[in-house]
Design a protein around this nucleic acid. Structure first.
Lengths: 219, 219
DNA sequence: TATTATGTAGGTATAAATACCTATTTTTAA
DNA sequence: TTAAAAATAGGTATTTATACCTACATAATA
């Protein structure tokens, strides 16, 4: 797959000339990569690419630009020229941006304060047809799962039977159907519902379902 | 923070001797790391650590072992000896396992077919107090967000008014309350409910709420 | 041993949702 | 401009959920 002596042409898009210059100087001794174009916003970058799409292998773009953000640029490029690789570089590390980058089908995401080694690794990987996502996003994903964990513990306020019934409620069974399934009276199911509503401070089953989903009850 | 010439002591836990031998031979020329103990399951590993916890810096463990899986081992180690680093190594790449590893507070996660460079990078990072998560998990996270994206588009099957009403349903308002809020009849709200039930193929409001949450309607 | 939590179940009522209808106005698109 | 989709609203009936009540058996616990 890999072409050993091929040089990859890079378009840099960032509204700070300092950043563009920094990345250029970082790559100046790397014969494998050549910065062949620059843009100060997404629209400018898109215009450059549209003029001669075959000339660019990689678009290295900042997130925050106007007009046309890095994410929007990525979406456009991937739609019009799927072969061009896009590496999104962000100043900050936010889950929302990572998600957007992934949904825009970016080939990579990294934070600006990454070292030269990380930069080169990212370029190697994506020109090789792979993806590169900065390790810095891990703590964010991590913290999301920590949240989930805490919420799991909240679920333990409910008894086993209540959790069993809750999961059937989420499966859209009525009290009667749940009773049949568990060989108990509909009335008993209704009692459990009422107790759960109280315990979870919910106005109706809808709140209960939200609570269940928040706490990872499979529906 | 980093101690330049320090040697780190590693405990290997895997129920396949082949894997243990493989990792050992991989590290044999790395003076920075020394495999000083081996275990064939989590319980055995935990016993070894408990006997002399100060002797081990890193636990490198497989996921699938019995008794005591790698995840459970990690949980225990982190609870009893938080200073010991845990790197979880898995044969397969599953989101569920990654999540569990994160929730067990593992310092790193990587797939078994990683190269020596990745292995060393992982060890460097975690002995340095950081975390290392294999790039291979990115496509999985990615695919999850792709799902979300598709579902976002699904929401557009609903009209604006329907989405407005759906979001109020998720907020646990009754048809009557929604009607008051939007200055329309309760009957109209009921019609919208019915249409949405049909459009979304739901048996009851509960299904509608699940649909809404899946599609990111804020409740 | 007495108390509390859990799971069970019945009665009676009301409130809310759902299933059918029909029908008018407005907006959108063909 | 004509047809289709969306938003509106009413009638009637049934089903489901919720709000109160009481009551009893069991298991865990103080």
């Amino acid at each position: 797959m890999t072409e050993p002596n091929r040089q990859y042409s890079i378009l840099l898009a960032d509204d700070h000339q300092l950043v563009i210059d920094g990345i250029k100087s970082m790559l100046v001794n790397e014969s494998k990569y050549a910065v062949t174009a620059e843009a100060n916003n997404g629209q400018q970058a898109l215009d450059i690419i549209t003029a001669a799409p075959e000339k660019y292998d990689v678009v290295l773009t900042d997130v925050n630009m106007a007009p046309l953000t890095g994410i929007e640029l990525c979406r456009k490029v991937k739609e019009l020229y799927p072969d061009i690789k896009v590496l999104i570089v962000s100043m900050y590390n936010s889950m929302a941006v990572v998600k957007e980058a992934m949904q825009a089908e970016a080939d990579g995401y990294m934070v600006k304060n990454s070292g030269k080694q990380d930069f080169l690794q990212a370029l190697h990987r994506i020109t090789d047809g792979g993806t590169y996502y900065s390790q810095d996003i891990i703590p964010i994903i991590y913290s999301q799962y920590q949240k989930e964990k805490q919420q799991d513990e909240e679920l333990s306020h409910l008894t086993l039977r209540e959790r069993e019934i809750l999961s059937l409620i989420v499966k859209e069974l009525t009290s009667e159907e749940i009773g049949e399934r568990l060989f108990i009276s509909k009335k008993t199911v209704d009692n459990h519902r009422k107790n759960m509503l109280e315990k979870c401070n919910c106005k109706s089953t809808i709140g209960l379902v939200k609570y269940a989903i928040r706490n990872g009850v499979r529906g």
